[in-house]
Amino acid sequence: MTLTLNTVAVFLLGNLLVAFVRIWRGPHPADRMLASQLFGTTGVALLLVLAEAQGMPSLRDVALILALLSVLAVVGFVTRRGLRENGHD
């Protein structure tokens, strides 16, 4: 099982690396911001798998925090670009 989990982890890592090509190329800044969403899902999945494979329960806490921070990063991006609506939602 550990071997399977490690294979899955390597696959997910490869996925993240391939996705970085898109982030590198852009072209819209929003495309780059998709990186944050990627970390929020692929990164979390990777950490959950690693937590089991390596027997490190604390990696689950890292996954939890990564999911939380990914939203904050996007909020920061939207605010910084001054693209937020003038009204409220």
Partner: peptide, 19 residues
């Protein structure tokens, strides 16, 4: 963690789409 990632992803998607 899955539920949190779900909410996080939906919120990010909405914010980026709005931008």
């Amino acid at each position: 963690i899955w539920l949190l990632a779900l909410a996080a992803s939906a919120t990010s998607a909405h914010l980026v789409a709005r931008a």
